[in-house]
Structure formats: C-alpha cells, structure tokens
Amino acid sequence: MVIQIPKETSPRPFLKWAGGKSRLIQQYIPYFPKSYKTYYEPFLGGGAIFFYLQPTTAILTDINAELINTYCCVRDNVEELISLLKEHKKQHNRDYYYSVRNNSPSSALEKAARVIYLNKTCFNGLYRVNSQGKFNVPLGRYENPNICPEDLLRVASAGLYHAEIQQADFTEVLNRATGNDDFVFFDPPYHPINNTSYFTAYSANSFTKKDQELLRDTCAELASRGVRIMVCNSNSEFIQKIYTEINFEIHTIKATRSINSNIKNRGMIDELLITSFKDFYLPKQ
C-alpha cells in the first residue's frame, strides 16, 4: 500500500505526552553528536527527538506495552487504525469516553485506537495509571478534540517505517549499543525537585532513586564502550551529583513546566541535558 504524504510535512509526535521534548529541540541541536549510525531511544514517550532526527537506523523501546503497541500499529496498519479512530470520533461524548476508559479491547489495533482516542480527549493529554495498571485520567474540557489526525498519523507511519520498535526495560540497550557508531537518547521520568513535582505513575511502577542510579550506571557502561549518550532530567542536586561522579558534561536548558499540583510552580524552569561526549554540533553563526 502506498501512503499519500502531504507535501512540506515532516514527521512529528502524534501523541500528547507529559515531558514531551518538541519545544526543547532547538536548545538540544548544538549538543547532538556530529555523526552516528544507530539511534536508540529507550524511553520513547512521544518520540519528539526521533521524529526530528529521522535517523536511518533506529531502535525504539519503552516499558509501556500499550504505547509500544500503538507505535507498531501506526507503523504497520495506519489506515485500519484511522478507520477505528473515525468511529471513536463519531461516538465521542462524556459517557462514551468513560466507557472506553473503563474497558480494554482485545485486538492490537483496537487497543492502539483506544490509546490515541483517550490521549486526544483526556485531561491535558496525560498518560497515568493506578497501582493496578489501569488508565485513570478524567475527561478533558475540549470542544472539538482532534481525535483522528489522519495526515499526522500517515506521516508518522512513514517516519517509523524503518524503525525497530519493542517493549523493553531501558537496561536492554546494554545488549545492543556497543561503540561510537551508536547514539542513545535517554528521557527518563524526571527526579522530583520538590514534594509538589511528583508525577505519578506513567507505568504501574514508579521510577525511584535506585532506578535513577541504575540509569546512571547504564550510561557509564555505555560511555565506556564509546557510545554517545544524552540524558534529560530535572535540575536537582541528586541528578547533578550522580552524573558529576562519572564525569559527564552537564548543561542547563530552559523549559516550560505545565504540569504541577501548585499553579504557582508552573512556568519557566531549568532542566539538565547531560552528555558523555564533546564533539557537538556548533551553533550556526
């Protein structure tokens, strides 16, 4: 099947995602490696960096099984997925939203359509589950949500065509990335900078300090092989300390925080971009 792609359109995220990196890409550009062959993104989320870079070879993974299934369906069966989303669009109302939220279908395509439908209609486009792993975000206040962005999905499908997509823990990258032809971009759940900045739970298990340290150790091992590493995280003393211990470069990025229980704590904040290499792209003069 030939997918008709609108002219002058580049692949970009088709899901709204907490902590998405679309607005930060311009600040990241000077720090991307000059060259690499295989790109890895072990915390895929909305995939903004992958869609921007469009690497020839990419290994995309995430622990979230529903997210990975959705990416696979967008890549492999986008027209069937669009048909299902059109049906969701026709039936959308408050009662329908909660019916879909509370009932998980059996087929992969129906599950993917459910994820996208809920993402486009839930509050703030959050993905959050309870301790039983059930999606629990309430309905958002949208007059006309874009439930079936056909062109966006088709372009994303084409962008994902050559990507390998798998459900996996982030440490699995240790089994694949081996040298300086590899570039790994890590965008983990951020370490909280205060008691109001906790964002619960992207998956049924929260990302703890021990997980952050395991990620740091994973980065250290990859860097010892010559793998190029970039890591995003909060500007916290803990994160600065653990990456300073392994002599990584730490850079400050300006970001906009839009999710916080205290509205006064929303707005511009500093985040960290951490790298294991120094052969950056230089900003154009």
Rank of each mutant, 00 (worst) to 15 (best):
E150M: 13
Y142G: 06
K120L: 12
F135Q: 10
E143F: 08
G140C: 06
R141E: 14
G133T: 03
P149G: 13
N144I: 02
N144K: 07
P145E: 10
Y127A: 00
Y142V: 00
K120D: 08
E143G: 14
N136L: 12
F123G: 01
L118M: 06
L152N: 14
Y127Q: 05
R128A: 06
C148H: 07
S131N: 11
G125R: 00
Q132P: 01
L139R: 09
E150Q: 13
C122T: 02
G125V: 04
I116R: 00
E143H: 14
V129Q: 03
V137G: 10
S131W: 11
G140E: 08
L139C: 08
Y127P: 01
L152F: 07
L118V: 02
Q132D: 10
C148D: 06
C122Y: 10
N124E: 01
L139Y: 15
Y127S: 03
P149Q: 08
N130H: 02
L126Y: 00
L118E: 02
E150T: 14
N146W: 15
S131M: 11
C148F: 05
E150D: 13
F135C: 14
P138W: 12
E150C: 11
P138L: 06
E143M: 13
S131P: 03
I147K: 08
D151Q: 13
T121Y: 11
L152E: 15
S131G: 05
N124R: 01
N146V: 15
R141D: 15
V129K: 03
I147M: 12
D151C: 05
G140H: 12
R128Q: 07
K134D: 00
C122D: 13
R128I: 10
V137M: 10
E143D: 15
P138C: 10
G140T: 05
Y142P: 07
C122N: 14
L126E: 00
Y127G: 01
L152H: 10
F123C: 02
N119S: 11
F135S: 13
L152S: 11
I147F: 12
C148G: 03
N124Y: 01
Y117M: 10
Q132I: 02
V137L: 09
V137W: 07
L152I: 03
F123Y: 14
L126D: 00
Q132M: 11
N136A: 12
S131T: 12
N144L: 06
F135M: 14
L153T: 04
G125K: 01
D151A: 05
N119L: 08
Y117N: 09
P138T: 13
F135H: 15
P145V: 06
N130P: 00
N119A: 08
R154C: 06
P138G: 10
R154S: 05
L126W: 04
L118T: 03
F135E: 13
K134Q: 01
I116P: 02
G140W: 07
V137P: 09
L118G: 07
V129G: 04
L118Q: 03
N119Y: 04
L139K: 06
L152C: 13
R154W: 03
P138M: 09
K120Q: 15
L152M: 14
L153C: 12
E143P: 15
N146R: 14
N130G: 00
V129F: 06
T121W: 08
S131L: 15
E143T: 13
N130F: 01
R128N: 04
I147A: 09
K120H: 11
Y127T: 00
R154K: 15
L153I: 06
